[in-house]
Design a protein around this nucleic acid. Structure first.
Lengths: 221, 221
DNA sequence: CTTAGAAAGATTGGATCCAATATACAATGT
DNA sequence: ACATTGTATATTGGATCCAATCTTTCTAAG
């Protein structure tokens, strides 16, 4: 007997579905910062009651993606430029370390996968897909670090600033530069040079942060 | 008209209260790992319904303090030795950086506060109070880094392993060594030597992690 | 005696209802 | 006209009820 066994117990609850959908919408910028999130309205969109919606909102707040006020409701969280700078600095520290830990564990298969993700960058120009490819590329390498806790934090950090990054990339030539930097990081990984990969990753993130801050200062005045 | 105005809107919801109480109980080890958390039972303890309890449990799960299975309930999360090692390694990286960023901003007032916390270590032998003092000491210095996002992650990381640390400290002479190391870190801070403070903090955390792992390997066999 | 299967009880997930609070707007007095 | 107060509506927080699922127990056949 052969079949694609699925663990039924992992079936998603209504709250899980709402949470993931809202998370995705916020990360991709489909929901603008400051936008109101009415429990009733969301419940109707998902054909459910407000209970799972409230659970989802509570989780989103824990992750800093929304802010809530008692009896007033939830709004999509916005980040100040200072907060954005802090998160980029944090990511630089963390991801530089993760790639350093990953390099010694990289095998042929993982590198091939990363290579394919890297090649995708030339093709995509849509910001949602670009963001997806960006995550795939970095995470395919990061996985080799075998540090689930680190990766969880890395993910959460990227979640917070992804929408700003995407908005900027579509409006500037940041995508081309990012593609070149990815190429260099990949190169260092194939050579097994952990220190170089780490330094390049650090610069890659700090550069992206700097251009984003410049962009936002113009935009916000 | 003069009165002590209080922002009423910050009043805690039932879910907030339950969340904080359970978080504290788990961190302090009052709830053993693997212990079942029945919604009904908790609701009765807090004289409330299951709704706020479910919200609290959902938040706790996001922070990794409990694990839940659909229709089966929640249990206090346990960490494998590998997971504990990873979190100590992570904390070493992060807190070493935080203290480095903090040192240039330390002023007389902050140092005095840290000094007082440091002096508390000699007095306390109760593990709950010791843990509290430990947090107070480190955080009083960390605050000067002015990196709220970093601190949020630092807090969450400590939350996960605090109960193991406390259990070990009461059963070994780890408290004395920790006190000496705190003294040294404080010394480096007063001198304004950021690199030294960073290195000492890193070692302080890695040492604590190593002794804890040794302790747990014995205990768990 | 063991074990598969069914029934009963326990527990969680979700829906509906009620209470507490906020917001918008009308009414009233100066 | 303006500010203040009262009221009506909208929205959230919490309680209670029902459905879905798990766990345990009981039964009966091998």
């Amino acid at each position: 007997m052969k079949l694609d066994a699925v663990d039924v117990r992992q079936a998603a609850s209504a709250a899980d579905i709402v949470y993931e959908a809202l998370r995705k919408a916020i990360i991709e910028g489909a929901l603008a910062e400051g936008e109101n999130l009415r429990q009733d309205q969301i419940a109707q969109m998902f054909n459910t009651s407000r209970i799972p919606v409230r659970e989802a909102l509570s989780r989103l707040e824990q992750h800093g993606l929304i802010t809530t006020q008692r009896y007033k409701g939830a709004v999509v969280a916005g980040l100040s430029i200072e907060e954005i700078e802090e998160i980029f600095e944090f990511r630089a520290l963390l991801e530089a370390e993760v790639i350093r830990l990953a390099v010694p564990n990289l095998d042929r298969k993982t590198l091939d996968l990363a290579r394919r993700h890297c090649d995708e960058f030339g093709k995509e120009s849509d910001s949602a897909k670009w963001g997806e490819t960006n995550r795939n590329f970095h995470y395919s390498l990061y996985e080799a670090a075998r540090r689930p806790y680190y990766l969880q934090i890395v993910r959460a950090s990227l979640d917070r600033i992804d929408r700003y990054l995407r908005a900027q990339l579509t409006l500037t030539d940041g995508m081309k530069r990012a593609a070149r930097e990815h190429e260099a990081i990949f190169e260092a990984c194939t050579k097994g040079d952990a220190d170089l990969a780490s330094a390049l990753t650090r610069d890659h993130i700090l550069d992206a942060g700097r251009s984003l801050v410049v962009f936002l200062r113009e935009q916000r005045g």
